[in-house]
Design a protein around this nucleic acid. Sequence first.
RNA 1: GCUGCCGUAGCUCAGGGGUAGAGCACGUCCUUGGUAAGGACGGGGUCCGCGGUUCAAUUCCGCGCGGCAGCACCA
Length: 644
Amino acid sequence: MAASKVLKVASRAAELAASIGAGLAKAALAVKIDGKLSDLSLPITGDAKVEIITRKSAEALELIRHDTSHVMAEAVQELFPGTQVTIGPSIENGFYYDFARNEPFSTDDFPKIEEKMREIMKRNAPIERKVMSRADAIKHFEGKGEAYKVELIRDLPEDQTITIYQQGAWGDLCRGPHLPSTGTIGGAFKLTKLAGAYWRGDSKNAMLHRIYGTAWRDDKELADYLMMIEEAEKRDHRKLGRELDLYHFQDEAPGSVFWHQKGWAVYRCLEAYMRRRQDATGYTEVKTPQLYDSSLFKASGHWDMYGDKMFKVQIAKSNEEGSRDETLGLKPMNCPGHAQIFKQGIKSYRDLPIRMSEFGNCHRNEAHGAMHGLLRVRQMTQDDGHIFCTEAQIMEESLQFCKLVSETYTDMGFKIHRVRLATRPDVRGGTDEVWDKAEGAMHAALKAAGFEYDLNEGDGAFYGPKIEFYLRDAIGREWQCGTLQCDFVLPERLDIAYIGEDGQKHRPVMLHRATLGTFHRFMGVLVEHYAGKFPFWMAPIHAVVCTITNDADGYAEEVYQKLLDAGLRVQIDLRPEKINAKIRDHSLQKVPAILVVGKKEAEGQSVAIRRLDGQAQEVVGLTEAIERLVKEATPPDLLRKKGL
RNA sequence: GCUGCCGUAGCUCAGGGGUAGAGCACGUCCUUGGUAAGGACGGGGUCCGCGGUUCAAUUCCGCGCGGCAGCACCA
C-alpha cells in the first residue's frame, strides 16, 4: 500500500512514515521520492511527492530480490574465499549474481549457501548506504582484490555518485536502493540454477559463474512460483510431443523435426486456417525455390550479414576451360524470392499493394546452444508474407495486418498481450533518413491500431524497424510470435520498382510480416499453452469409438465410418480390453471425445459421449452426435462465416 | 559458439573396472468386463561413437557427436 503526503520540511522518509503512523513506520521498506525509488534513510529536501514503499508494493519485490542477491554474494564469499563478485541484479521472478572463480560451483553447494544466507538474514545487519569518492572506492576494491568492481567503477560516468552498501562486515558497490536491513528480506527464497555467463554479456570476455535464485515476499508466493515451474515442466512440449505421439527429434537431424501423424494433423489445421485467412484478405500465395545462387543473397545483403549462418552447397560446374566451383545457398528467408516474383513483368501503381504469402520453408544454421525443441530449429516454415506497397499505403496495410494478428491469436485461444517496436540496431542497412521514415510509419500505424506499445531500442532487423507481437500463455509466460517489419532497404538492393502515376519508376516499400511466426515455434507454444489438450477444432484426434465388448464391433465400425465420412479425425478401439482401460488410454492421449458403444447403443442407434476431463456421459442419437461433433470441429473462422 | 551438467531397453530411470536391472510400453495366451490400469507368460540392450589406460572399460581419461540449463545469437 502506498501512502502519499505533501511535506514542507526537510526530513527523512523514515520520520515521515512515523509521522503518518506507527504501523506504516514498521512496514516501511523504502521510499519513492518524486517517482524515484530511494532508501528509507535518505533525507527528503524541499517539496516532494513521497510514497512509502511497503512489502505489498511491486517495487518491494524488486528490492527483496536485489537484496537477496547481495546476501547470496556475501554468503558465497564467506564460504568460498577468493571468489570475486561482479554484478547481481534482480530479474523477473528472482535474481542472480555472477562470480569470478576458477572452480565452478555445483548445485551440491546450494544447501550450504542457502543455509549461510539464512544465517546472514538472521543477523539482521542494517544495510547502510555509504558515498565514496572515485579514488577511495577504487582503492577500497583494489585492496580486496575485486578487479571486476574496480573495472566497473572506472567505467562509471564522471558525475555519478559512487555508493557502497554495507551490511555488517560485507559491502558491495551498488547504486541501490536497498531494504533497511538483511532481516527485512524475509527469507522466502531458493537457489535454482547454475550457468555460465559472460562478463558484461560479451562472448569475447571471460566466462563467469552465475547462480540464479528466486525470491518472494513470503513462503506462499514462493510455493506458488515453484508450483508454476513444476507446471511448466509438465507442459514441456518436448515431453508432451513424445507422450502424445505428435513429433520427435533425433540426433541424425539436429534442429529438425519429425512430424508424426498426430502432430502434423494439428500443423495442417494451423496451415489451413492461415491459408483461409490470407486468401480472404487479399493475399496471393506463391512458392519460391529453396536453393539460390549466392549472387542473390550477396545482392540482398544477407550473404555478408548472415552468410556464416547459412547452409551453403558447393557444386562443380564444367565448361570448356575445365570446372569451376559455384556456391548455392539454402534460403534463410523468403523475401529475396518474393522480390523476384515481383520483378517479373512491369508493375504499375495500380497493382499495389501486392500481398504475397508463402508457407516458406527456410534453413538457418543456428548455434548448437540456441536450439530448443520446436521453439528454435534449423529448419522451419513461416507463415510468411511480403506486402509491396507505396509509402502512402504503409499505414493502411499495417493496420490491416494488426487486425489479422489480433483475430488470429483470439481464434487460437490467446490475446495480444504486449506490442513492442524494435528500433534501429547499431549494425544496419540504409541511411538514417530512411530509418526515420520507417520508424515514423511504424509509430503511426501502431497508434492508428490503438495498441499500447513500448520500445525495444536497438533490436530492429538490419533492414528496418520491427513490430513484435507478444502473447501470454495459460501459465503467464510471454511469447513473441507475430512480427511486422518495414523495409526501405531491400527494394533498393534488389532493384525492384513500379511505374507510378507520373509514368516514372518508383521504389515500393516491402512490409515483411508473419502472423504465427513459424509453425514450429507456434506449435510448441500451443502445446505448452493447452498442456496438450487442444481445442476440439485443432485436436489431432477428435474422437475415439470404443466398444464395451466385441459384440458391438459391427455397430462401432458403422459409427466410425459415418464419422470419417463427416470429415472428422476419428479412431476406433476394438481391443478386447475393459472399457476402463480404454477410457484411461484415450484420456491420457487427451482425445477430447470418447464415444462408447455397447449393446444398448447398438440397439438404439446411439453413442455415449464422454468428454475429456468430464465424468458424466451423455447418450445421444448417432445422427445428432455427428452433427454436434462436426460443428465443434469447425474452425472458428468458418463458424463465423457460416454465422454459427 | 561459450560455461556447467548429461547420454544405460521404445519411454522414465536405477546400477557400476569382471559384458546389466526395474516400472511402463511391446508380443502371445486367457479374460467379453458399462466410463481412468483384468491376469499369466515372454521377447527385447554395440550401456552414443572413436581412441587411450588396464589382464579386463558400459563404468576411468581424452576427443567427437547429440541433448539439457544458462549466456551469446535469433534476417
